[in-house]
Design a protein around this nucleic acid. Sequence first.
DNA 1: CTGGGGAGGGGGCCC
DNA 2: TGGGCCCCCTCCCCA
Length: 565
Amino acid sequence: MVFHTQIASIMEVLANAAVAEICKLVDDDYAVFRLEITQSQKENRTLRRKLQLLELKVARERVLASRPSSVKILDRYRGMTRGTFSRMPRQRGLSPRSPLLVFRCVTTVDEGSGTSTQHVIVIESAGAEAASPGGLSLVKQESTEEEDPTHTRDIQTGAVAGMVPPVSVEDLATTPQPRTRPSITEVSGTLNAVLKSEIDTETLTVTHRHLHTESDHGSDPERLLLGRLGCSPAPDSKYLLYGNLSPRTVHSHQDSGDALETGNDLSRSYTTAMDPGIMPLVLETQTDQSRGDWNPYSSSVYSEGCLDKKREVIVIDEVTVKVEGDVPLTCNAEETRLWERYSQSNTSDDLDCRDRLETNLNVATHSPLHVVRDRNPVSTSMAPYDSHGSIFFDQVFNSDDRARDEGRGGGATSGNSKEKRFLCMFCNKGFSCLQKVEIHQRVHTGENPFSCTQCEKRFSRQDHLKRHQRVHTGEKPFSCPQCEKRFSQAGDLKRHQRVHTGEKPFSCTQCPMRFALAGNLKMHLKVHKGERPFTSMHCGKRFSERSYLRTHQQKKQPSESIHIP
DNA sequence: CTGGGGAGGGGGCCC
DNA sequence: TGGGCCCCCTCCCCA
């Protein structure tokens, strides 16, 4: 018995020793792993810094390769500008309640070195007299990781870039501007003039420097404001939409960068007013800085909304706006159509301004789609189709259309008592909630997140997928009471029932013929118009429908190719 | 050509 | 708010 007890005791001691050994090994390994992880993180940071420096170098080389002091408006920018500015005249001035966002874009280009330095964009709200329960703001969040002071990032375009025209004004440097100036900043010359002068140049580098939290620049009143607003750094660079959903928050990111050397930089400021639900954003060029009046033809940013903050300063991180050549962006038919619709929705006074801008900017037709599609995820961490960003842009650029549509009781936003504060940035349609507009925007983005498990087809909507799957299941829940015929879609049944009722709601305007189906009438009208776009390559015979040509070819020469003009 | 069905896209509404 | 449904429209195809 004693022997067994001793054995058990020895076993226990051995077991404990083994456990202790294992724990020690684990701890050691853990320490090693932690060390390795830490080293890897350091390496990552180092590499990131190198990458940033490389980007900066590339950007500077681009500047050197082009006319150093020149400024160019990003081509895709113009599309946005067009959409933006076209609405300016409709902005009937700043509401007294309207707070302002001031986009202070300080951009200087060193002609000697060809580098652009110390550019600042400040977004601040000013002049708000009234309060509102919420606010809407777009800010750029940045990683809080330590950054190289010289860090610049290329952004092809983006929400922020879209908000703030990449304007580099070489002569601006002659007019110092106090950094602490609290309100709308000065702008020399008209925007048109500036933009015009910028058109034919090749490269622009605009740097938006992020102002920082008050801990960085506690003496700066603007930063104090930032601090007062409780800036919180965000882990990722992202554009956010702040609407009524939450109290206004300003995100900043800590930057160890060099001071804002804006004292010697003349700022081009862009002012906005913010509406909690709508944030129309147009760019203001104040031609009369002494008065601070709003040029009715300038790109003033305002809304009729209100904010609960009288003054806010949002500072955009330093970024470098890479400006590309004048190569027109290509538009596919859909984009062109959208843009045409977008453009045509403007009233005549809008056109005045738009035309002028187009003249000055030599703006080709660019759909708003480009604005989004050209966001470069390489240089900004924003996803190309960031829905929030899109919505934001729409809020910014299309709210005026919304108001117009609502005002005249027409358009996509009419006929619904619900406030449709979420607007599609592509087509200006209004939706009552975020998800609706996100789903809708798949129309433009082509996103089809719902895939059929039976086939390769994908759909933008779940209900469409569900409907489609009846193809595979053979389910036809809609049956005709007259003939027992069954259909997979209710609309098909309804359409079919015209066979029984004899209803032919589609009548030809050229002849007395009537049709039960709209498609049949459409096809019939081609007979009247003589439209025969489908030509047989074999015999030259023309047909109004592709199917006719195909039938003809099958009869004549099955291998004949189809010529579609 | 005409008639008709299959199927997908999109908006609105309801729960 | 999100999912689902209804409805309308359109394109395509075939008889």
